[in-house]
Design a protein around this nucleic acid. Structure first.
Lengths: 343, 343
DNA sequence: GTGAAAGCGCTAACAC
DNA sequence: GTGTTAGCGCTTTCAC
């Protein structure tokens, strides 16, 4: 193993100087250009890689962040699988990894089942990570009282949190239908507990409807499943036959709604238009391909990385960052209303 | 911060003894029950969490593994996204995380763009991780010469590698069609370079066809895209009008094949049956829902964790592990052949 | 600007 | 069985 001492020896300087040249953190001291060059060359020639554990121990910073992901309480086949598979988490993780890597931090992956958030606490207390990013997860009390820098994504605090413009997504979806000429638009998926997005997306829908002077009509859903989406859409369409369009709180519910619409003998988009939110991987494969709203997941990940790193390094709360707006992805599930609405 | 010294003091023992009681690694020495109890209680009372950096520095083991994931060279919208989003990586990561966590190791997430595998090398040389798991990625020469314990998943070595029974998957898919009564079965997706699965799945198809005394008919594909799948399926069906069924090398190609089949005026499954492989998230949403073969991704992840940890701790190659077989997931895209085959 | 030296918290080899 | 002690490789005062 090549140590700092070896580099220092070869460059003809002391360990302290070599450290000052080579480490990002310790560089508040001016160094002469020639010394710097000699040290850097020696490091290169020796293929020096600083020992992360030694750096962490000595500096008190691990230069690592934890991403915590909830284990889904649902099963596929007979094996557990994490929320990984859905919600475009991949995009978010990409962004997080990108931002994290750029800043010279590492990302430690952690998963937790429902409420047992012991493992991120342990990662923090063991100084494995300097901070924690919680994916669609509210900060547990224990982590907060432990003083761990943390950031919840897509969920309201306690503690710092950021989210995409979920309300805007509901609005974008609704306004798209409005601009197509729809006047009787329902919402599938109100009231999913603990999920920030569900509340805000509904709020966006309500705002858009009211701004257009129209009466909103929303059907609640207890959990996020296709089956629930199907049932809710069915109830909505039976209760309000004048509806010509539906906004679904997310693509999964949209998928269920599609089934309900078809079961009632309607065609999409001729009789009923449908918009989802999320632009999940399944969206283009639904029949017809689903018009939906894409959330800035990648960017949210990047922003989260910057935010938590600022929090870790400055131990002062950064300002609320700007998140790019959701965008409409137009596919084949929406069209202008036919005459059905005329009665 | 609560240190080992504090625990030792409170328990009335030396640091060495406390360490022996509390650390998994250092426990080859017998300890009296009463001492052990006293130390454990003291640790509990003080809420002691060993400093990971100090442990790593002192022991020379980080108790961490890297998972390396390739950055996809394709774009979605205008942002990069990783292979995360596809190939049921989520299931595999779950299994990996599970196995890793159980053994008291952590998982460090790393992504690389195509061939630049510098960052896992750096993780290893900096002693951030004790070993590396490469997801659908061949081991780069540099990592091997560096002596890093590593394991490639779903790809043939150099270095250790494990994969699911890809050949079996091809066979299962083909045999399903055979058992339905099909005799003219084509294969979409031969010859995708560098991908172990593509070769083996084709081999499984060929074996099943030959075992049934039938003539195989495979269409090559250059890259894994729906468009390529569509083109290949079209070529195949035009060249061999007697075909009544298709096996696609994976669900993405199956999706493209579905389009081609429909474009040629055939119905699925009445005129043409179609089987995919992977059971990706999109599979149940295709029209009709795709019959496909599920790969044991979760288990593969778990097995990988055990394997690499054995490699790290024993520095001896474990035996080739048993991976559960692929299983057929029957949905609506397959049925017995109609009379078309009779001419 | 640079060197010397004191730890960071833990493990492990060695005594007893 | 348990205590003592010498580091692990780096950062960071404090001198000069």
């Amino acid at each position: 193993m090549v140590t700092l001492a070896a580099v220092a020896r070869r460059a003809g300087v002391s360990e302290g100087t070599a450290s000052r040249v080579l480490s990002r953190t310790n560089s508040r001291v001016p160094i002469s250009a020639s010394t710097r060059a000699r040290v850097e060359q020696a490091a290169r020639e020796l293929d020096y890689h600083p020992n992360a554990a030694a750096q962490a121990l000595s500096s008190g910073r691990a230069r690592a962040l934890a991403v915590v992901i909830r284990e889904q309480a649902r099963w596929r086949g007979s094996r557990p699988h994490h929320i990984f598979s859905g919600y475009n988490l991949g995009e978010g993780l990409s962004g997080l990894q990108e931002g994290t890597h750029q800043a010279g931090y590492r990302l430690v992956l952690d998963t937790v089942d429902e409420e047992a958030l012991a493992s991120p606490l342990d990662l923090w207390k063991s100084r494995v990570v300097d901070g924690v990013v919680l994916w669609q997860l509210a900060a547990p009390e224990a982590l907060i009282t432990a003083g761990c820098p943390l950031l919840s994504l897509g969920v309201v605090g306690p503690g710092a949190w950021i989210a995409a413009d979920e309300r805007g997504a509901g609005q974008v979806a609704t306004e798209h239908l409005l601009s197509l000429g729809h006047r009787h638009i329902g919402f599938v998926g109100a009231r999913v507990s603990h999920y920030y997005g569900s509340y805000q997306r509904l709020a966006g829908y309500l705002a858009a409807m009211r701004a257009a002077g129209l009466t909103p009509e929303a059907a609640p859903v207890e959990i996020l499943s296709e089956e629930e989406g199907r049932a809710a859409a069915r109830r909505l369409l039976e209760r309000r036959p004048q509806l010509t369009a539906l906004v679904a709180m997310n693509d999964l519910l949209a998928s269920g709604s599609l089934t309900a619409i078809r079961e009632l003998g309607f065609r999409v988009p001729e009789d009923i238009s449908l918009v989802g939110i999320d632009d999940q991987r399944i969206a283009p494969y639904l029949c017809p391909p689903l018009t939906t709203v894409r959330m800035p997941n990648y960017e949210l990940g990047q922003i989260a990385a910057h935010y938590i790193i600022a929090l870790v390094e400055a131990s002062s709360t950064p300002g609320q960052p700007e998140v790019p707006p959701p965008t409409l992805i137009q596919r084949a599930s929406t069209a202008p209303p036919l005459s059905r609405q005329d009665h």
